[in-house]
Amino acid sequence: MATILTVDDTASMRQMISFTLHSVGHEVIQASDGQEALKVIEGKKVDLVIADINMPNMDGITLLKSLRALADYKFTPILMLTTESQEAKRQQGKVAGATGWIVKPFNPEQLLTVVKKVLG
């Protein structure tokens, strides 16, 4: 149904997210860090971005800021994946314009609920 971009440097994480989203029929684009993400969305229209915070090359916060700077993605919902201990990062993300956050590890049902909530 919707096209969702998932960015995480852990393959298993990306796999789990894709698997969950596929099961309800979403299309998933994967990227392993911020830079790759920006490259991979060229020419495509993405409805939702789910990004990890800690990544090499370009971390989640920077990716967030870069996306928000693009006209196409000014109002796209962007969700950050975070572990509980990173409260400071969460604040940073909010300031940078994140739509919301998902706590790791995520429960697939919860993920689907949040995705539905955010995609309307």
Binding site: K74, T76, P77, K94, T99, G100, K117, V118, G120
Partner: peptide, 14 residues
């Protein structure tokens, strides 16, 4: 608010 990708409409719907 829109700049964070949040939409009040969705919230109201929820």
């Amino acid at each position: 608010m829109f700049c964070t990708g949040n939409d009040p409409l969705r919230i109201l719907r929820e």
